[in-house]
Design a protein around this nucleic acid. Structure first.
Ligand SMILES: [Mn+2]
Ligand SMILES: [Mn+2]
Ligand SMILES: [Zn+2]
Ligand SMILES: [Zn+2]
Lengths: 140, 140
DNA sequence: TGAAACAATGATAATGGTTATCATTATCGC
DNA sequence: GCGATAATGATAACCATTATCATTGTTTCA
């Protein structure tokens, strides 16, 4: 039950715990490892809560992303995808298959040297986004 | 005159050399080092060619990106930015200042280990996109 | 308890970058 | 120059996201 920690975080920041927000978190929780779009989340939430509005989904996802609970990532498809953040800093990277569109993950970070070099140039690093495009094993 | 090489490339692939395409290439050439949006390119071209259509700009940029002449990059601003490709593979990375929006470059690649690891997992790497977000020296 | 005060929601319009459509025009091999 | 065909420009359409606003739910505190 990951969302308990998230609900506490929301409560501490005086966000209201609404049925809509709980449902959105539950969908994300039930699809851990996936990279869901707002539309996909909206459709899943709708099954249990037919009257939910898509604006609420967008608002909630945005709030959760700003709180650092979710990662909002673009794979240049013209939309954003969302997933839980495992920890605050140095999240994993993504492999996107240009043939089938599948998105997988690499756990290794391995950007230390690069970031050290950047910091040496006087740039204060906050976050990074690395997407590797290629062809997955199944598509070769 | 970098665009001479590009014009030859276009000609060899039986693209027609039109005044619009020449003007678009010229704008990109005159702004090397910048990361221009389609809108910015459109406005610059318009100064010399007031009747140019924005659809032509988009079509040309898309064609040039597909030919590997331009890089089409997203910095998650809700639009794409374009710049000349210096070589086919292993282009530079970008630093985006979250305060002033300035985009600078790092020439070092330093993703060899990471890509080797990925290839070992059976993923055939074609391209990658690394954007580092942070605060630039001037904004600290 | 009972009102403000405030936060969240849902419906829907608006936004804005990009793409599709289509009639017109320009290019280039002959 | 001619003609096949590619390219262009105007404009409508697309579509993910955001803004607006009236309504509903929740908290505060007299
Ligand atoms: Mn992921
Ligand atoms: Mn660049
Ligand atoms: Zn694949
Ligand atoms: Zn800055």
């Amino acid at each position: 039950m990951l969302s308990r920690y998230v609900l506490d975080k929301l409560e501490n920041l005086s966000y209201k715990i609404t049925p809509q927000r709980k449902a959105i978190l539950q969908v994300l929780e039930e699809n851990q490892g996936d990279h869901l779009s707002a539309e996909q989340i909206f459709l899943s939430v709708k099954k249990r809560m037919p009257n939910v509005g898509i604006a609420t989904v967008y608002r909630t996802l945005d709030a959760l992303a700003n709180l650092g609970v979710l990662h909002k990532t673009s794979f240049d498809e013209g939309l954003f995808r969302y997933e839980f953040c495992e920890d605050d800093r140095h999240h994993h990277h993504h492999l996107v298959c240009v043939t089938c569109g599948n998105i997988t993950e690499i756990e290794e970070d391995l950007l230390y040297q690069l970031e050290r070099k950047v910091e040496d140039q006087g740039f204060k690093v906050i976050d990074h986004s690395l997407v590797i495009y290629g062809i997955c094993q199944g598509c070769q």
